[in-house]
Design a protein around this nucleic acid. Structure first.
Lengths: 220, 220
DNA sequence: TTAGTTATTTTGATGAGTCAAAATAAATGT
DNA sequence: ACATTTATTTTGACTCATCAAAATAACTAA
C-alpha cells in the first residue's frame, strides 16, 4: 500500500498537470508539497522505481497509468470527504479542505463507496470541483437532490442512488421513479423532514437522508 | 501534536490498565502494539520525556494525567467512529474496528464533536464499549433513543442531546421534553421516519436523525 | 544460596522522509 | 559566444519508529 506521503506526491502531480499531458516540474511539486526541491528529486526517483511515475531528469515528471489510478482514487476520497463534512456534518465550507487532507489517507475504499452512496453519488464537491468516478473518469454533469434542490421548483427525478431492495421498493410504491415529475413543498431541518409532492397525489414525507438519494434536475 | 504512533501507545496503555491504577508491563504493550519489547522500552522513555507517562524501569509504565487525557480522546474518536460506520454507513459490525484504527488518528476534535452530535451522543459504541465523554469521564449509564428503542414500549424521555435553539424549539413545541412519557409506534428505515406518540396526543413524525437526539429509558 | 528461567534494557543497524548546502546542468541576456 | 541566473541533482546528515541480538536485572525453584 502507498504511504500517505506517496499518495500526496501523486495527488499533487495530478492536480498540477490539470487535464493536459505536460511534465510537472520539481520546483512546482516542491512548492505544492512544502518540501525542498532536493527532497522531491529523491522521492520522484523512488516513485519511478515503483512504477508510479516516469521521470525525465532535468525536465520533469509525469504519472504513469498506475500512478494516475492511485492519484484519482485519493482525489476522489478527498472530494467525497469534503462533501460529507459540509453536507452531513454541516462544517464550514472553507475549513473542510484541511480536514480532508488527513482523512483522504485514512479511509478505505469500502468506506469511500458507502460515503459516495450516502451522499447520492455527487458529481462535485462543495467547492464545485468534479469528483472522479469509481472508474477514474471525470463526469462534468451535475445534479441536485430532493434534499438540496430549490423548494417549490418543478423537477424531474433522474436517478435513485440507493440500490437496496428496501429503498427501491419504497421508491416504487410512492412513484418516485426516474422520469417522474415532482416538487419539494417543504424542508424542515430541525425535524429532518422533506415534503415532496407529485403533480397528482398527496404530499409525501421523507427524511433528508432518503431525499438525498433521489437526484433531480429542473424541468426544462 | 502527538503522532499516531504516540496515540496508539497511549491508547493501548489505557486499555491495558482498564479501570485500575496498575502499571502496564512492557511485554503486554509490545504484544498489543505488535512490536518487539525493545521498541516499547525506547518509545516509553521518549513518552516519559514528553510527560505523557511515568516509567518505572523494570516494573512498568503508567499514564500521567496528560497522557490519560490524550488516550481518552483517541479512544473517544475510535468508538464514535465505530458508531458512525455502523449506524450511518451500515458497515459490518465486525469490520469497523480496523477502519476506526486508521480514522481515530485522522479526525480533528471539531469533526469528533459534530460526529458525536450527529449520532446523538451515544454512550457506547456498537460493541457496547463505553465512549469517554468530551470531558474524559466514562459514564456507565446507557440510554436508548427514539431511533434505537423498542417499538410500542412505554418510555420516558431523559435527555435531549442537541443544544441548538432550532432543535430545542421543535422539541418544546411538540412536548418532547425530558420527563414526558412517549412511545414509538412505527419506525421505517427506508423513508427514515420514526412515528412517536404521546399518551394524549396525535402521532408525530420525526427523522431518524432527530429521533436519535432524544434519549429515553423504559418506563419503570 | 545458586542455577535457571523470564522480562527488560541496551546496542547497533535499517528504511522512510526530510533538510542544508554544494555541485551540476540548462536557459538567458547582451 | 560567454558569463550569469535559475532549476535540478547530489551528498551528507538528521529524526522517527522499528528490529535483531546481546547484556542485564529480577524472579523462581531446588
Amino acid at each position: 500500500m502507498a504511504t500517505s506521503t506517496v499518495e500526496n506526491y501523486l495527488k499533487h502531480m495530478l492536480l498540477l498537470s490539470e487535464g493536459g499531458e505536460e511534465l510537472v516540474s520539481m520546483g512546482a511539486l516542491a512548492e505544492a508539497l512544502a518540501v525542498v526541491p532536493g527532497t522531491v528529486t529523491t522521492m520522484v526517483k523512488a516513485l519511478a522505481d515503483s512504477g508510479h511515475v516516469e521521470h525525465r531528469p532535468r525536465q520533469g515528471v509525469r504519472l504513469t497509468a498506475e500512478g494516475r489510478r492511485v492519484a484519482l482514487n485519493v482525489l476522489r476520497k478527498h472530494r467525497l470527504v469534503e462533501c460529507f463534512l459540509v453536507n452531513v456534518l454541516k462544517m464550514d465550507w472553507a475549513a473542510v479542505d484541511t480536514e480532508a487532507e488527513q482523512l483522504e489517507h485514512a479511509i478505505s475504499d469500502e468506506v469511500l463507496d458507502r460515503l459516495d452512496a450516502l451522499l447520492g453519488h455527487p458529481a462535485t464537491d462543495p467547492h464545485g470541483d468534479p469528483i472522479p468516478s469509481r472508474q477514474g473518469k471525470l463526469d462534468s454533469q451535475v445534479y441536485a437532490t430532493l434534499a438540496t434542490c430549490v423548494v417549490e421548483k418543478p423537477l424531474r427525478i433522474v436517478r435513485i442512488t440507493d440500490q437496496s431492495a428496501e429503498f427501491l421498493q419504497f421508491v416504487e410504491q410512492n412513484r418516485l421513479l426516474p422520469g417522474e415529475s415532482v416538487r419539494v413543498t417543504e424542508r424542515n431541518l430541525a425535524s429532518g423532514l422533506v415534503t415532496a409532492k407529485k403533480t397528482a397525489g398527496r404530499p409525501l414525507a421523507l427524511s433528508l437522508a432518503a431525499a438525498g438519494k433521489i437526484l433531480v434536475q429542473p424541468t426544462r
